[in-house]
Computed example of a mutant assay.
Amino acid sequence: MTKSAPLTLALSDKCCEGHTGCEFDGTLKRVCAESVYLQKVYDATLFNLQGLKNAAGHHFKPYLGDDVRIIRVLDIRCKKVFNPCNINDPKNLNVNLNTTVSGASFVENEHGPIKVVGPDGRRSEFILYTDTSECDDEHKGTPIFGTQIIKITGDVLVEIDVVYSDDCDCECTATLKGEIPIGTDCDPLVLTNFFELCMPSVFNSAFLPRFTEFCNVGCEARLATNSVSRDIIIDPCTGCIKVNLIIAICVTCEKKIIVPVQLCVLSTGFPCLKPNRDPICSAFPQLFPDNINNHCKPCRPRATAESVDEEPI
């Protein structure tokens, strides 16, 4: 008699895959030209910056006891601290940008530089202006230069997987955790970089060019001297654990010159998602108006088991 597999409440698949509703079968019969109104990138530049933070004697938990010895370190992980219940929590790792440009200027009003709404839904774009007539005559862009000061504040969470020997000389594993402050509003970690961008005409357009920038920050951690005995100290009386670390802050920043434009693109039609039907309603309203371009036909919904069974033979 074979034993059945043990019951478990764990999910068989902890991850998922997204469905956009866009399908393309490889044929060009349903592809047509569409006009879209959006923001076009005229120039962009990408930067990778890094900074170091020395973290000496920081407390880590849990306490392992007063008669233990760290044998080796298995892994060290570092991630940003973020409190979803309070976006203004000073412990959240934040990147604050301060950018100045030369060769052009940000358009201002009585309150300072004007910011307009970008694709992220926030007022994250500055309006640029300079005399571009000289380069317009050559059908080229006008170069502008800038300086960016990045101030990083908040904390990072460091996790250290260790193997230790307890008071019975048994080897055990544990994960030590500690929050390391990177910077505060009064004493941030400061990084600086310089950039050059190419600006299109301000005269041959209904819109002035816009400047936008965004950054993402990560971190890596290592023992300060790569020595377990020197960098991980356990108080023999209290069992308190202190660790000496070096934290590398890794920053990726991108800057763009963009202008609202109207483009012609090839399209297969609107997305077609299979709805989760409610048996009470016999019909549901559509989300977008029908296409009024006769050359573009709507895409067919993705075939499902139900629709295949309903097709006549």
Rank of each mutant, 00 (worst) to 15 (best):
E159L: 11
D75I: 11
T212W: 03
H58S: 13
L245R: 05
C253P: 00
C78G: 04
R230H: 12
L97Y: 02
K297Y: 15
S282C: 14
G154V: 04
P279H: 10
D235P: 03
K40L: 11
V251N: 03
V101T: 06
D231N: 05
Q39V: 10
P119H: 08
G57S: 06
E171N: 14
N244M: 00
L287R: 11
Q148D: 07
N92I: 00
G178L: 04
E254K: 11
V243M: 00
D137M: 14
N276K: 11
F195K: 00
K177R: 13
T192M: 13
P312Q: 09
I232S: 04
R277I: 14
N86F: 07
Y42T: 05
I249D: 01
N244A: 08
I258P: 03
Q50M: 12
D278G: 02
L189D: 01
A303K: 14
E110N: 15
L52C: 12
F270H: 13
E159M: 10
C16Y: 11
V202M: 06
P260M: 04
Y129G: 03
L208S: 10
L263R: 15
K177G: 06
S133A: 15
N88E: 09
K80E: 06
T147D: 13
I180G: 01
P90D: 02
M1K: 14
V117F: 03
V41W: 03
L189P: 01
T20E: 08
V95G: 04
L189A: 04
H295V: 15
E220Q: 13
G183V: 05
D290G: 10
T192Y: 12
V107A: 06
R210P: 04
T132H: 07
P113H: 06
V73I: 12
D290N: 12
I180E: 04
T192P: 03
D13I: 12
E159Q: 14
V31H: 00
S205W: 00
I71T: 07
A221Q: 00
A248K: 15
T212P: 01
N244L: 08
T132I: 00
P298N: 01
R72D: 09
R72P: 03
K3T: 09
D136R: 02
G178P: 05
K91C: 08
L287V: 15
F203P: 05
I280C: 13
T173P: 02
H111Q: 15
D137T: 11
L191H: 08
V117N: 08
S229W: 09
R122I: 10
K242E: 13
E159A: 09
G18E: 11
E171I: 10
F126T: 00
L28T: 15
S229C: 08
V243W: 00
G103I: 14
T100D: 09
S227L: 08
P301K: 03
K297I: 12
P236E: 02
S307H: 01
V156F: 02
E254M: 09
S307N: 06
V81P: 01
I87K: 11
L189N: 04
D166N: 12
A283F: 15
D89E: 05
I127A: 06
P312R: 10
E196T: 15
